[in-house]
């Protein structure tokens, strides 16, 4: 282990870290606490505790439909972004491919372009092409944003892949397609899993693009936004808490999966 700032007392460094953790977790903790409050307004102190907000949320058709819609969009986004992302990563890592750095830069651009700019330009784009707003447009917008994460994760994994694995497969009788399916793809599996979870999470989380490209049906963030505009209530806290727990669980599980296959 290296040690930085070794002449500052260790306790000072540790204290600053814990300060950051409190800053990170306290708002989330407050949000969760209020979701158990037996009153109609969002404020402290909490006199009586209840689970009724959760019962209400889980029976709320609007909420459940928005959840399903968001998940559907996330899965479609993941499907398309994975295919496109893997394809681009393979192109970039192909030997003798011209303008590799240009392809890479272009593929990664959507990750750094501000969401708002991206959303407006997509809106104009679908207008020009006469594509209606709604599910298809949202998936298009989310896919563009998700592709860079797949590209970067797959590319990183490809770089660590020994060159002659594919040669060995070819040598043992595989044509290039079979070699890809039986050797390259399994090798990429951890990166794919990580990239796909990332796609799902960014898509479910996305508000700006959905706002500009969406139709009448609301996704989860849009529903929560609409409810907040109608006034804060512990019901929103309960929704947010549920979303937080589910997404955190998915994220941690994916991290656990990729870590395990990485150490193998």
């Amino acid at each position: 282990m290296r040690s930085y700032f070794s002449d500052i007392p260790k306790t000072a460094l540790q204290a600053s870290y814990w300060l950051f953790v409190i800053y990170l977790l306290l708002p989330l903790a407050l949000m969760m606490a209020i979701s158990f409050k037996d009153a109609n307004f969002v404020a402290f102190p909490i006199d009586k505790w209840t689970l009724k907000w959760y019962a209400q949320v889980l029976q709320d058709r609007q909420f459940l439909e928005a959840c399903l819609y968001s998940i559907f969009i996330a899965l479609m986004t993941t499907l398309f972004a994975t295919i496109v992302g893997v394809w681009i990563a393979l192109l970039i890592s192909t030997e003798g491919m011209i303008a590799r750095s240009v392809i890479f830069a272009l593929a990664c651009l959507p990750a750094v372009v501000p969401g708002l700019i991206n959303a407006i330009s997509m809106r104009i784009f679908i207008r020009v092409l006469d594509i209606p707003t709604g599910t298809g447009a949202i998936i298009l917008g989310h896919t563009v944003h998700a592709v860079p994460f797949v590209v970067i994760m797959v590319l990183t994994r490809l770089r660590s892949m020994p060159n002659n694995l594919v040669d060995a497969a070819r040598d043992l009788g595989a044509d290039s397609f079979v070699a890809f399916m039986r050797v390259t793809l399994p090798y990429l599996a951890p990166a794919l899993a990580g990239g796909m979870v990332f796609c799902v999470l960014t898509s479910i989380d996305d508000f700006v693009r959905t706002f500009f490209l969406g139709g009448y049906q609301t996704t989860l963030p849009m529903l929560i936004f609409a409810k907040v505009q109608g006034g804060m209530s512990p019901e929103i806290n309960a929704m947010a808490t549920l979303v937080l727990i589910v997404t955190a669980a998915i994220g941690l599980y994916a991290e656990h999966l990729t870590r395990r296959s990485r150490t193998r």
Partner: peptide, 21 residues
């Protein structure tokens, strides 16, 4: 002929074993 159409096999310098199998 491509490698998969030849009845020769090769042992690579760093073995090139498939890590997932």
């Amino acid at each position: 002929l491509p490698p998969n159409k030849r009845n020769v096999n090769i042992v690579f310098q760093d073995y090139a074993l498939f890590p997932h199998l």
